[in-house]
Design a protein around this nucleic acid. Structure first.
Lengths: 160, 160
DNA sequence: GCCCTAAATGATATGGTGTATCATAATTAT
DNA sequence: ATAATTATGATACACCATATCATTTAGGGC
C-alpha cells in the first residue's frame, strides 16, 4: 500500500475509533501503519523490528502485543492463528458491512489475501458442523493455498 | 480410547506401516499410544510429560517432534496448525479411503473431533479460492466451535 | 487549572515452542 | 562383518507469548 493510501486508511481508522469511543493513540496508529505498509503478515517481533526502523526508536514487544490486541478488537487488524501473524484489515476504508474474513495464504511467497466467502457457503459449513454435534463459533478460515503466480512458477520449475 | 481399542489400533498402525515400508519403532508406537489414550490434542511437550509418566523414563522433546513428523507423514497422526497440537488420526482402524480431515475444536473444553466434510462442499470452497486468484493446497480445516455440551452449559450459565 | 481515576505504555522476568547441530545407537543392505 | 542409512540422544539457542509491577499519559469532575 502506497503512502497516500496509508494516510487515507489511517484517517478512516481514526474515524472508526472516534465512532466507537476507542483511543487510537499515536503508537497504535504507527503499528497499524507498519501493517498497512507491509505486503505480508507480520509477527509481533517483526513489527518490533520494523517499528524501530520506521520510527527511529525501539518499542517493547509487550506493547506491540497489546496494540495488536487493541487493533484486532477494533477490527483494524486480524490475527492469523495458524501462523501467529497479523495483518491490517483489508476493509478499513470501504464501508462494507464487516463480515468475518477468510484468508488465503500462499505457502510459497507468504502472500495473504482477505476474502469474504459467500454467506450460503458459510451456512452450509455451519450445518455440517451442527450435524457433527458442534456449533461453529467463528467463520474465520485460514486456507493453505498457492497464489496463481507461485503455482505457475512451480509448474515451470517442475518442467525445466 | 480404552486399552483394548488402543491395542487394536496400534496393530492396525503396524500393518499400515508394514505395507508402506515405514518403520514403526517402539518409541514411535509409544508416542502414538499416548495420543490414542488422550481425549484431547497434545502439544509436543505435553507428550514428553505423558510419555515419561506412562513409560517410566524421559524422552527428548527433539525426538518427540521427529516422531510426530513421522506419524503425520504416515497419516497416523494429524497436526492442528492453529494450536500447535497433535492428535491421533481417527481412522487408523477403518478401511476408509483417506481424505483430508477437518477438525472441530471446542473452544471451551478443547475437545476435538475429526470429520470429513462432503466433497462437494470442499469443491465449492476450491472454486471460491480459485476465483480469488489462489489454488487451494490443503482442505484441512480447523474450525473454532463449541461442542453441544459446552454450548448447553454456557446457555445454562447465562440464564442462572 | 487541579486532582483523581483509569487507561496506556514501559521494563523485567519467565516459560513454552520449535529448530539447528552434532554425537551416538540401531537397523538394513551388501 | 562392514558400510551406509536411519533413528535417537544431547545440547544449545532463537523465537513466541504472557505475567507482573512500575511509570506515564489522558479524561472527567470540580
Amino acid at each position: 500500500m502506497n503512502v497516500t493510501e496509508v494516510e487515507r486508511t489511517l484517517g478512516a481508522a481514526e474515524d472508526s475509533c472516534r465512532a466507537s469511543g476507542a483511543r487510537l493513540t499515536d503508537k497504535r496508529k504507527n503499528v497499524l501503519a507498519v501493517l498497512l505498509r507491509s505486503q505480508k503478515p507480520l509477527s509481533a517481533y517483526d513489527i518490533v523490528d520494523q517499528y524501530s526502523k520506521d520510527y527511529g526508536g525501539p518499542i517493547p514487544a509487550m506493547s506491540v502485543y497489546r496494540m495488536l490486541e487493541f487493533l484486532a478488537k477494533e477490527n483494524l487488524a486480524h490475527k492469523l492463528n495458524s501462523e501467529n501473524k497479523y495483518l491490517a484489515c483489508a476493509h478499513i476504508n470501504c464501508n462494507h458491512h464487516h463480515r468475518t474474513p477468510q484468508f488465503l495464504i500462499c505457502g510459497s511467497c507468504n502472500k495473504v489475501i482477505e476474502i469474504g466467502i459467500r454467506p450460503e457457503m458459510i451456512e452450509a459449513l455451519r450445518d455440517a458442523v451442527k450435524a457433527a454435534g458442534f456449533r461453529l463459533q467463528s467463520s474465520q478460515l485460514e486456507l493453505n493455498c498457492l497464489c496463481d503466480n507461485c503455482a505457475k512458477e512451480s509448474v515451470t520449475t517442475a518442467d525445466s
